[in-house]
Amino acid sequence: MSFKNYPMVSRVIFGRGSFNQLSDVLQPKRLNTKAPFVYFVDDVFKGNAWLTSRIPLSYDDEICYISADEEPKTSQVDELVEQIILKYKEKPSGIIGIGGGTILDLAKAVSIMLTNPGEAKDYQGWDLVVNPAIYHVGIPTISGTGAEVSRTTVLTGPDKKLGINSDHTPFDQVILDPELTKDVPKAQWFFTGMDCYIHCVESLTGTYLNAFSQSYGEKAFELCKEIFLEDGLSENDSQDKLMMASWHGGMSIAYSQVGVAHAMSYGLSYLLGTKHGIGNCIVFNQLEEFYPDGVALFKTMMKKHDIQLPQGICKDLTDTELNIMIDVSIGLEPLWENALGKNWKKTITRQKLYNLYKKM
């Protein structure tokens, strides 16, 4: 049998204030004075000098502010790539993503598409990327998605929501500075943190589980319980631990796979544009049948933090719309196989998914 030979992020800095080392990290990577570093920055930081004044710009370097209000799209990747190609005489020295999962995924996707022909939608799937990406750096400003460590970049394309899963996707460098997460609104903190928690539940109960993914998943799971259930954690401790939980949760699924909640939330996201973290929570809330213990604990966490989930987002959808979501969801075969084994199609019928979506 052959074993997965997965790449990891080759360099990582962790620590409060480590963002200040960005200039030292990038300097040796500059190809020449005409090859800029392009920064993709979440537009919530526009006008936030505390963060933006520390971005080390020189020569033709540029900050490109990007809204994270919508999930990243293949068309958006293609537009960004075209802008960069038209604007600069040379390929950039690197792409640096500063933000949450949306911005990090865009940074990964653009760095791949700058060296590979065609459109981003051509690479949605597993191991379709041929040429190495240009140098790319991830700096998360919210914790939970695991985008900083994963080998996928989740994109909504013209006919599916699916990542560019490849050995060339992971960042070359990540800077984990928990201080950058200090202004995240509470609901967003919870929903994105639950993305990490759900990664752990799906990985630890899946058929792809092995000692490697289990060791990371168990650590992330314990950290999530500490952060979301225990009292007395200082804000700094909570930020540090959630950043570590996100990293470990991402590592756990890198060597296994996610499951039912992710498969179904991709459907919500594709049709309704539901943000990934909140979509996972809406779905997971209805999955007692698959993850009884995980869902019970999730409900306890929601109650403790006084979180209300949107209700009835699917109740007025037509059968045509529900079938679109079912198509997107059921197409994610590795996720279903991890959750339920090779015979998953005996359990997961279109009617079953229809009934579950109707509850949301």
Rank of each mutant, 00 (worst) to 15 (best):
E289Q: 14
G157H: 05
Y39P: 00
P117C: 13
D69Y: 02
I330F: 10
G97W: 09
C200H: 11
D159A: 08
I96C: 09
H248Q: 12
I278M: 15
P92C: 04
T74V: 14
F298C: 06
V174R: 01
L80I: 14
I139V: 11
H136D: 05
Y357D: 07
N131H: 13
L176K: 11
S10D: 00
E119Y: 09
I112N: 04
S213F: 09
D43L: 01
V283L: 14
I348Y: 03
E289H: 02
G118W: 02
L297R: 00
P170Q: 05
I139Y: 03
L353H: 00
G99S: 04
K160P: 02
E226P: 00
S67K: 03
A68E: 09
T318I: 05
A109R: 01
R151Y: 06
N343Y: 03
R54L: 15
S246Q: 10
I313E: 05
Q351G: 05
Q308M: 11
Q124Y: 02
A109G: 09
V184C: 04
K46V: 13
F190T: 02
N343C: 02
V149D: 12
W344D: 00
T320E: 15
V283G: 04
A220R: 11
G267T: 06
L242W: 00
F190A: 05
G250I: 07
D167N: 08
V130D: 08
L180V: 09
G279W: 07
L340P: 04
G232L: 06
P310A: 08
Q311W: 00
V137M: 01
S58M: 15
M264Q: 08
D231V: 08
S18C: 15
Y208G: 06
L287Q: 04
M8S: 03
P178F: 08
L106Y: 11
I95E: 03
T318Y: 00
M113R: 08
Q239H: 07
D195C: 11
V110Q: 10
V110G: 03
A211K: 14
W336I: 05
G294D: 00
D293R: 07
L162C: 09
L51D: 12
R11T: 04
Q188A: 05
G259Y: 06
G206S: 13
T318R: 05
F191A: 14
E230C: 08
Q286L: 00
E119V: 13
T192L: 02
K359D: 10
I348T: 06
K342N: 11
D61I: 05
L272T: 10
K359Y: 02
I84P: 06
T33A: 12
N210Q: 14
M301E: 07
N20R: 14
S269E: 01
F298P: 03
D78L: 08
G138L: 10
I112V: 15
G47S: 05
L51M: 14
Q311C: 08
D195Y: 07
D327R: 15
P56R: 12
S246K: 06
V110S: 11
G279N: 12
S23T: 04
I313V: 15
L31Y: 14
V129T: 12
G294L: 01
D319P: 04
K345I: 06
T153P: 04
N5L: 06
D122F: 02
S18M: 13
G217D: 13
H276L: 10
E226V: 01
A107G: 10
N236V: 09
